[in-house]
């Protein structure tokens, strides 16, 4: 049975007026003088212009002791050591892979930084170099951790723990990195029946929770069995909820995603993406989060 919805566009309303939060942050635009006090160190989003500190992006000023920086609303991913990222392989080069992580330069995964199948610990040989495509090909998705950041900003990744590696069946959602909240852990097994990896670079991976935590494969043997229908529904609903949260600009973390999922249960999965439904469920999520904070 076909469903087709065609509608006329509606001018959007400024939603923030209804929210109780008053913003007492110092908001700046490029070219604004932040301070003329020379005692401060300058961080991201600022530059020194004859005797004063000037903002170079539009956003909120953050002051940490003597460091002033401006956090832009939306940027490409800036790698920091220890971040968890989800990336897609774009190129297979000599002894390394180039990974796309929504950063300003492609990230690098060295052959020596990758765990071998079975978790073996040995020096990489010439055969490994020739067999690189057997491990990871162009288009594959991986989860990894940032090992180091080069001087020009490119990021070097490693998958030396068994929880990282090639990703199997699931759905990828790409959002802006500024919407992913920094937390202690980015791997979540949600109670609704699916698991989520919230990459710091804005790539979010939703996948069916594996039954047993089988460690030996190290993430190389992908399970291509069909995923049961019930799990698929949960995954699709989570995907639409994340898109709704992004459209209404709410920070993404496990609690907000879970509350949004629960608020969306009365609606059909495909209806979640309609503008009025999105607004309704995100508003409900906001209220619950505010109550949670007390």
């Amino acid at each position: 049975m076909a469903a087709m919805e065609l509608r006329l566009p509606v001018p959007r309303k400024v939603v923030s007026q209804g929210l109780a939060r008053g913003s007492d942050k110092h908001l700046v635009a490029p070219g604004d003088t932040i301070t003329t006090d020379t005692g401060y160190m300058r961080g991201h989003g600022t530059y020194m212009g004859d005797e004063k500190l000037v903002a170079s992006v539009a956003g909120a000023v953050e002051r940490v002791n003597k460091l002033i920086c401006v956090k832009a609303l939306k940027t490409r991913y800036n790698g920091e050591v220890g971040d968890i990222v989800v990336g897609r392989i774009t190129e297979v080069q000599q002894k390394r892979w180039k990974v796309e992580t929504n950063a300003r330069l492609d990230s690098v995964l060295l052959l020596s930084s990758m765990n071998l199948p079975g978790g073996e610990l040995r020096r990489r040989s010439a055969e490994d170099e020739l067999a690189m495509r057997d491990y990871l090909q162009e288009g594959d998705l991986i989860s990894a951790e940032v090992q180091a950041v080069f001087s020009d900003g490119a990021v070097s990744l490693h998958t030396r723990s068994l929880k990282y590696g090639k990703l199997g069946q699931g759905v990828l959602v790409q959002v802006s990195p500024s919407l992913v909240k920094r937390q202690k852990t980015h791997f979540h097994d949600l109670p609704c029946g699916a698991s989520v990896i919230l990459g710091n670079n804005g790539f979010i991976w939703i996948y069916p929770t594996p039954e047993q935590k089988d460690e030996e494969a190290g993430g190389f043997v992908t399970n291509l069995e069909p995923v049961p229908l019930h799990d698929r529904e949960v995954i699709s609903r989570l995907r639409n909820c994340i898109l709704a949260l992004v459209a209404q600009k709410l920070m993404l973390y496990d609690t907000s995603i879970l509350y949004c999922y629960e608020a969306s249960l009365p609606h059909q999965i495909k209806d979640i993406l309609k503008p009025e439904v999105m607004q309704e469920i995100v508003l409900e999520t906001r209220h619950r989060l505010l109550e949670l904070e007390g």
Partner: peptide, 9 residues
């Protein structure tokens, strides 16, 4: 900027 910052909370 004001609208987005308020929405992000």
């Amino acid at each position: 900027v004001h609208e987005v910052t308020t929405l992000l909370g």
